[in-house]
Design a protein around this nucleic acid. Structure first.
Lengths: 190, 190, 190, 190
DNA sequence: AATGAATGAGAGTTCATTCAT
DNA sequence: CATGAATGAACTCTCATTCAT
């Protein structure tokens, strides 16, 4: 059986994903994890801590993978495509974690919020610089600001949590592929 | 001075947009509106009612406009572009309402949630049928499911609430234009 | 159509009987009566007033009838029997009013409560004096205090509201007859 | 000093008996018990729970005792008399509990109400079968339905709460004895 | 390492009553 | 006569967190 902190993180992830941070009572989390409140407060300083822990790890993992992909030597279009597919696939593979992030990122207390924002900005900027690289190389259209393009695509990814279901007809790879197609398509020079 | 229900809706819209439905106390709303709780419950059955009222009106308005645009006689690409610009512009023009909708749509109690979903689906489907029309006419690529394209674009629109600011460098029309460019670009046949 | 005060009394009677005084909102009463709150407060000083009005009239009526019966010239056993049947029958004939009285008599504010108690005592005492008359005449057993006998029988009557139903197998007259049989039976000298 | 749940039950019993369930605020209960609201909701799910707990225990106790008495081997008239005395005596010995039961039994929410009704029916039926046993044996009059006789007697018992006082001239045993005399007397064959 | 009783502040909601019109 | 908007106090219940054990 998993360790107590792991069980707590798992329980919290599932509940936050399903109902949203503010709608989940600490009591529900510890019940689902099969421990008591005292145990939770032994390992985590607060309910906020739990939230922070949850998407901190996803966010760090995705950032690492993005860097690995973006720093590669393939043509920029291929790297952008791979990055786009990857963020979709890892979000779906860790769907509960991702949904928590998509819906509850703003509910952290100030200090942790800053931390998350900084990480998120790193991700955004690395992604944007890929777009810019393509624009400078002349393979992507340059009449739409790269920043806007990144917002455009990330909105799409964040929205996954609202409609995607593992039981649906499309696998994560298929959705990622289609979304990458649309992104690359929209960047073709006119 | 505006009527009491209007003042309540305004206050609730501002607060829900800023902090999220669950983080706003009824007391804050009535304080900002300058009335008492009793007055609020005279006009609205619950805090939920207030929420429902807020984005119900935006959603209905956007649906109406979409239908007006989509039923026109212009070429399908032009109609889709106009619809895309319109949803961005009306979301920004009613930004607080839109942000409430983007972040709190799921927090309604069951019965009202169904109502909102039905309306949202209507919007989604009218938009999708525009994409399909273009696919059938051969002016849009058909290798990406229309449904997915619509999710793709709406994610983008929903995400506006997370980064757009009226103080930023881009007007609603500019953002709408760029987003429409990207959407139309991504739909060009390969 | 009945007058406004009458409609209010009727509505209140029905609702108080069904749910108990404290569980009925003034709003429900005026809705059922088809008037507004202002109208109610025009005719009645308070919700308490309505309650008082309701069983005041039943109580007065039953007291009058008791006096009429008890002051007759028939043998005391016949008069007691008639009185016993009468209180059952009039309670069932005005069942909602009676139920309000049975369950909500104690919920009045102090001054009206005193008034009701005084009337109730009058009833109790006239009934008791009938029992005593029979005891002195030697036709009723005297080893049980008359006072206790009256409590005994009135408990029975008050309890009607908890189980009697007009849809049941027994008419008011039948129940009254049986109860009178039991009362008279219990008073037979040993 | 008694445990917190016990103190809460005691406080609630006293207050419900004196003022009726709906007229007692949770705040009053916890103040009288010397604890906070949070503590109360730690032990009891709701105000209703408290009510249920209070007369649940009395009702179960009385049912057990009734069964013990009724299943004995004494002549049926003696067993009925003992049962009648017992319900009066135990009601007076636990007078606050009994008064809560007599006046507030109907104020429970649906599910608990059903439970209480079932227990009450068990009591009623065991008592009725005693009456029927005597009727079949020919020692009790059979021209009054046994069911009605039971309602008749229980009305009497329920009414105790409205007039009996420990400071009065009669002990619980005396009242029980007189009531039993009246009941047995009324059942003598004509 | 872990318990779970207890806190205390605040949540949303209800409601009898008042009063300007 | 009658309206219905508005009040304000009280209501039941929730919950993250603490702390003695």
């Amino acid at each position: 059986m998993a360790s107590v902190p792991e069980r707590l993180i798992d329980a919290a992830t599932r509940l936050f994903a399903a109902k949203g941070f503010d709608r989940v009572a600490v009591q529900e989390i510890v019940d689902l994890a099969g421990v008591t409140k005292g145990a939770m407060y032994h390992y985590f300083g607060s309910k906020d801590d739990l939230l922070h822990e949850i998407y901190g790890s996803l966010l760090r993992m995705q950032t690492e993978r993005l860097v690995g992909i973006a720093d590669g030597s393939a043509p920029v279009a291929e790297r952008l495509r791979a990055a786009a597919v990857d963020v979709v696939v890892t979000s779906v593979d860790n769907f509960d974690q991702a949904r928590v992030y998509f819906r509850s990122a703003d509910q952290l207390a100030e200090d942790k919020r800053r931390e998350v924002r900084a990480e998120r900005r790193r991700y955004h900027e690395r992604f944007r610089s890929l777009v810019e690289e393509g624009q400078e190389a002349g393979v992507f259209r340059a009449d739409v600001p790269a920043d806007l393009t990144v917002h455009y695509f990330f909105g799409t990814v964040h929205h996954l949590g609202q409609w995607y279901s593992a039981d649906g007809p499309l696998s994560a790879e298929q959705v990622g592929g289609h979304f990458a197609d649309l992104l690359l398509g929209s960047l073709r020079p006119a």
